[in-house]
């Protein structure tokens, strides 16, 4: 495992970012813009699942409208997050927050596409189920974001 991270640290992308003054902060700023968009597109659906926010629209309608923005921000997060990771792979290897974030991220993606969106698209889903799914989604994505921020502190 460590050998893999060591090799990732040596890639030309990682080296280029490390040697540049501007690249890391610039990519990080775009990563933050993605966070705002990801937060909005997750929140608007989860609030609706919890019975708040856009209550005059159906859950499937809110999800359908938010989904392209969620997918877009996810693409933006990966395309900026991976280069950031490559520039400090070894630091991440020893960083607990990084591993917490990766676990939460994997859970978040599987849960969002496998459970949350499927339940949200069903019109016969009971209230307690939609509310629970919304609450879990909020907690998982909050963990991803908070652990992500904490990578920088350690």
């Amino acid at each position: 495992m460590f050998e893999t991270f060591d090799r990732l640290e040596q890639t030309w992308i990682g080296q280029t970012i490390r040697e540049s003054l501007w690249l890391f902060p610039g990519i990080e700023a775009v990563h933050l813009l993605g966070l705002a968009m990801l937060g909005g597109s997750v929140l608007v659906v989860d609030l609706r699942l919890l019975g708040a926010g856009l209550t005059r629209a159906t859950v499937p309608a809110v999800l359908s409208s938010a989904r392209p923005w969620f997918l877009g921000s996810l693409v933006l997060m990966f395309s900026t997050g991976i280069p950031l990771f490559l520039s400090e792979a070894i630091k991440c290897y020893y960083n607990t927050s990084f591993w917490v974030k990766m676990c939460a991220l994997a859970i978040g993606i599987v849960f969002t596409f496998g459970v949350r969106n499927r339940i949200a698209m069903r019109r016969d889903a009971p209230r307690w189920a939609t509310a629970m799914v919304g609450a879990i989604s909020l907690m998982v994505w909050f963990t991803v974001a908070a652990a992500g921020r904490w990578i920088g502190f350690s």
């Binding site: 705002a36 968009m37 937060g39 909005g40 929140l43 908070a146």
Partner: peptide, 14 residues
């Protein structure tokens, strides 16, 4: 401060 961006700018962006 950073994480609240999801609530403030996220909702505003929608």
């Amino acid at each position: 401060h950073v994480l609240t961006v999801m609530l403030f700018v996220g909702m505003l962006a929608m």
